[in-house]
Design a protein around this nucleic acid. Sequence first.
RNA 1: GCCCGGAUGGCGGAACUGGUAGACGCAGCGGACUCAAAAUCCGCCGAUCGAAAGGUCUUGUGGGUUCGAGUCCCACUCCGGGCACCA
Length: 856
Amino acid sequence: MTRYDHRSAEPKWRAAWSEAGLFRSEIDRARPKYYVLEMFPYPSGRIHIGHVRNYVMGDVVARYKMARGFNVLHPMGWDAFGMPAENAAMERGIHPRDWTYDNIRVMKEQLEPMGLSLDWSREFATCDEDYQKAQQALFLDFLEAGLVYRKSGVVNWDPVDMTVLANEQVIDGKGWRSGAPVERRELAQWFFRISDWAEELLEAIDGLEDWPEKVRLMQRNWIGRSEGLQFHFETVGAPEGQGTLEVYSTRHDTIFGATFCAVAADHPLAKALEGEVPGLAEFTAECRRSGTSEEALQTAEKLGFDTGVRVRHPFEPEKDLPVYVANFILMDYGTGAIFGCPAHDQRDLDFARKYGLDVIPVVAPEEAGADFTVGEEAYVGPGRLVNSRFLDGMTIEEGKAEVAARIEAAEQGERKVNYRLRDWGVSRQRYWGCPIPVVHCDACGTVPERKENLPVALPLDVDFSKPGNPLDRHPTWRDTACPSCGGPARRETDTMDTFVDSSWYYARFTAPHAETPTNLAAADYWMTVDQYIGGIEHAILHLLYSRFFARAMARTGHLPSSAIEPFAALFTQGMVCHETYRDADGRWLSPEEVVRESERALRASDRSEVEIGPSIKMSKSKKNVVAPEDIVERYGADTARWFILSDSPPDRDVEWTASGAEAANRFLQRLWRLAIAEDLPAPGDPVPAAADDTATELRRAAHRAVRDVTADIEGFAFNKAIARIYELAGAIGKAEAAEAAGLPQARREALELAARLISPFVPHLAEELWSRLGHDTLLTGAPWPQPEAALLEEAMIVLPVQVNGKRRAEIRVPADADAKAVEAMALAEDNVKRFLGEGGPRKVIVVPGRIVNVVA
RNA sequence: GCCCGGAUGGCGGAACUGGUAGACGCAGCGGACUCAAAAUCCGCCGAUCGAAAGGUCUUGUGGGUUCGAGUCCCACUCCGGGCACCA
């Protein structure tokens, strides 16, 4: 029996698409545009199935929208800066640049056979000098607009690698590479002023209706808005210049429960006292040394040091509160100082118990009286204020309002909204990143590089044999002339966080070869991205940074104001998982080393028993990876595309199985066999008017499939769309065996519709079927089919009949039968009579077209 | 700790706004074709009682609303994810 040969068909059709230039997009104002984008890959070395799933989903959308008449933009590029390239350089002596571009070449070769409808003419890598130049120009414009600044900040410093570490790179207080205890060090860093946009970024989330609710919630939490009161206490016994202590609280209603104040180790008051109070300097040093990783913070004991300084309670002048330096107070949130109310904050309570401070309950639950006490658990629920003089009896909200009003009237403070979101530190002491285009001059200070001198390019002759930033110790690269005075100056050696690169690439795709970062006309036409697709792991940082960047670019004239939200719709796809295998010695085995039988698995080499582990995300360490090129070689790209979309909803994880891939291939072969049947009439031969019921039934099935597949694609339910296509193939297969007037024509119509419906999913096979059915045009880009309304309507329908809510019979009725007739038919059913027993029905509910329920 | 999801056959999953639970696929079982195998085709496939017709039970657990609940409400169990000294 002949078989569909993907090895010859797939390259043939890709060549045909390429020759026809179908995926090159140009501005065309006559057609509506559609911009579909998948999160671009980091060129780590090889494409894996997870990438394939991501891009195939985007491809289904792109091809579908193309068929619906949209002018589609579907580009691809490379997120090419980052640490792994430097690690490769250090470990294997390969230059990061060569390593990166080699990987890009290999991965592009892997991607090519997948048949993705990508416009490769727009391809770029973020490490291309063109892109760096554009990004540096953006940086300078942001700097001029006041969106970028430089300040000293506390960082995680690895003293061995001599570099700054991200919080995620600090494990148990030690550097993830060096294992050396991480220090908290103050370093001048460049920051983007994202926190200025906190309110705007938060409010605009409401408008992102086509984003997953989950992601919107995560962004809201990340921005972390809180409403509170910022006010000051008068200090007693504090050094010069520390006459007041500014604190921030969201529970200012509990002010009468305050029994202490606490400041951060880096707070000016703490610093001012370091030389005066014995032991304090040691304590603050200890605080600074302790790790900043989440785990370290979580497990760290709450420690405090009484400074001896006191503050005066604003409403009880006779009462003084002690001021502690505490290790759990953060300098960069609020004012770096708090008042502690142990009765109504667990952390404050723990602290108070440890240092023997008073616990004064000031909020009592409704059911409790004024003698309400707090044990080891702070009370944070609702209630009424007690022990609070003029606040007594008020609710928490009323208390807050009253305290705020009095503090404001006394000009001791004001209501203030605070955000968890911090400014974005973008300085990295790294080589393989985009250089920050500024110059340090002894005479002029920090001076922006002139735009005509861009790009500030990375030197290629760098030395990775020593730790630290190679740019810092390069013999000549740092030396330059001051753009302002012309005198000798030094280049900034920090490079930008790679998240900067990915924060605006979507905009660059609209005019990838422009001299300026963007071309406003092109951006105005293509932006915003209509559908963005990628992993949930980028739910916060990448997406938030991109939203900030689009706004900053709009402010500096690089994007139209209509594009401040870069991604109109977001879809987060699940991961690809696979079973794990271990041999008797506990060594991981890859799927190629294993023969899978129904209930067990054997090692291919010696048929020894293999333990089957859970299906988890594919990873090199567990060896449960499947190489896309192996699948493509064996079954073809279409099989890989079909299978990866067929089994699970796109937002959930999918398990890759060999049997599933085989089944996908079996189905594609089946479609092909159906389409090469010899008894099919010529193209254009219409279904005769006198067609038999069998033929009409097939036509109905085909047109229903068109309706359902269309809805499923629109709804991102590709697994359901595929199930509908399986059903259609089943109907065509059944019809092949039958003989009826008009059936060959109906089969032909159904096959043509099937070819059109599968084209977004398995584009090569769709073209092959289309061609085998006698067409000499390309199917790709051809208009999407419309179902015939008349064929979607059924003359007769089957209605279930329930007695007391249990199904007892089915009746076949005309679709437009009236309720009375339906009721009569239902009551005439034997089984209905049987369960009704003696006495007639008390009530009959007829839901037209749905169900009949008889109540006995 | 706080905030979100989710739980449906042996497995992945369907089920419109409350209306025949289990579409479609995998795995399994039986059969046809074949000397045989592969490929292909046909049938069965939640549990249970029954020869059958048909009955009973069944969507994590327990309650509730309703003519009718996988779907809505309340309480709980388990699983997954996010955040977490944020004052």
